[in-house]
């Protein structure tokens, strides 16, 4: 009887761990985060020296986004090829379905900024939207994402909430023109760098999902 119970308990443990593993999907890998962080910090330095703003501010950050997406595609493709899996895995489709609604408003606002919004120099508003909705997109994956990604999502969301306070208490050395760029460097650069460093060593042993 004790043996049967042990076997049943063991089976239930196996079922649980397999289900957790099968449903965990890291939408942002450590190499992608590191690549994003390096590019974001580099872009922030470049923009800081650029006097021709404000439209180029968005163009440069969109360029960073495109480069990071290309790098991520390469990393995912390499991993899929190595494991003999399809590029568009079921988990990836699930992640895309989860984050897409969160990208509609930032996309619309970016389009508005590129057409007429830049005339009013609304960079801070745009950056707040980018940070907030990026955080929301990460949190939208929380039911199958590892804990570290959920923490990253909360960091972005809370940072967006803190922007009005930061803006009104910013040190004099940081001008109103520089602030959006500094915020981008700290969040997209700094947070991704910390995330990459924290998750890199776990690449082999995947952490449990957030649930």
């Amino acid at each position: 009887m004790a043996n049967d119970r042990d076997r049943a308990e063991q089976d239930l443990r196996v079922i649980r761990s397999l289900m957790e593993r099968a449903t965990t999907y890291r939408a942002i890998s450590a190499p992608t985060a590191l690549c994003g962080a390096v590019l974001a910090i580099a872009a922030a330095f470049f923009i800081n020296k650029d006097e021709t703003r404000p439209r180029s501010f968005v163009v440069i950050w969109l360029g960073v986004l495109v480069l990071v997406l290309c790098a991520n595609t390469l990393f995912v493709w390499r991993e899929a090829t190595r494991a003999g899996r399809p590029f568009f895995s079921a988990s990836m489709k699930m992640a895309i379905r989860a984050v897409t609604p969160c990208l509609i408003i930032p996309l619309a606002l970016t389009m508005w900024y590129l057409t007429t919004g830049y005339l009013g120099a609304q960079e801070l508003l745009l950056v707040a939207i980018w940070i907030a909705f990026y955080g929301l997109a990460l949190l939208a994956t929380s039911f199958f994402a590892p804990r570290s990604l959920v923490v990253l999502g909360w960091c972005f969301l809370l940072s967006a909430l803190a922007i009005p306070i930061v803006a009104s208490n910013a040190p004099e050395e940081i001008s109103a023109l520089q602030l959006p760029n500094v915020l981008m460097a700290v969040t997209f650069g700094g947070y991704h760098l910390i995330y990459a460093l924290c998750t890199w060593r776990r690449k082999g042993a995947e952490e449990p999902p957030n649930a």
């Binding site: 196996v14 079922i15 099968a22 003999g84 399809p86 079921a90 988990s91």
Partner: peptide
């Protein structure tokens, strides 16, 4: 059976699995 239980578990966790995905997992 250990192997079949594992297969059933993965199929219960996610709607559809390709042969290669199951094999890798």
């Amino acid at each position: 059976e250990k192997g079949r239980l594992a297969i059933m578990t993965l199929l219960a966790a996610q709607r559809s699995w390709s042969f290669q995905d199951l094999k890798a997992e």
